[in-house]
């Protein structure tokens, strides 16, 4: 057996859109040998086979995350610029959730 075969399976991040859901939400991670395997595992572990759900799996190594240390320059500049969001409009009740 080659050394490659003895290595641990890579980590995958799982995103699921539920039947009524509008977008995929990150719901966890798992180890799998390849993407097809990761999909099957995600179906067993995270969806319990509800019909109509959509699953995305992404190798964890392919995700670039923002650094907690970058918070000041990344996010703080937005906090005093309220005009970037339409927060001064009143949304009528019949519009519902936006």
């Amino acid at each position: 057996m080659s050394n490659a075969a003895l290595k641990e399976w890579p980590l995958w991040e799982v995103f699921v859109r539920s039947k009524q859901g509008l977008e995929h939400k990150h719901c966890g991670s798992l180890h799998a040998s390849d993407s097809e395997h990761a999909l099957q595992m995600a179906r067993d572990v995270y969806t319990r086979r509800q019909e109509g759900v959509s699953i995305w799996v992404v190798p964890s190594a392919n995700i670039s995350a923002s650094e907690p240390n970058d918070k000041p320059e990344f996010f703080d500049p937005a906090s005093d610029k309220v005009y970037r969001h339409p927060t001064f409009y009143v949304i009528p009740d019949e519009v519902g959730h936006m």
């Binding site: 399976w9 798992l30 180890h31 799998a32 099957q40 595992m41 067993d44 572990v45």
Partner: peptide, 11 residues
């Protein structure tokens, strides 16, 4: 052989 496969077999 691995946790995820354990779950699949139980399923």
């Amino acid at each position: 052989p691995i946790l995820e496969e354990d779950i699949a077999l139980s399923n």
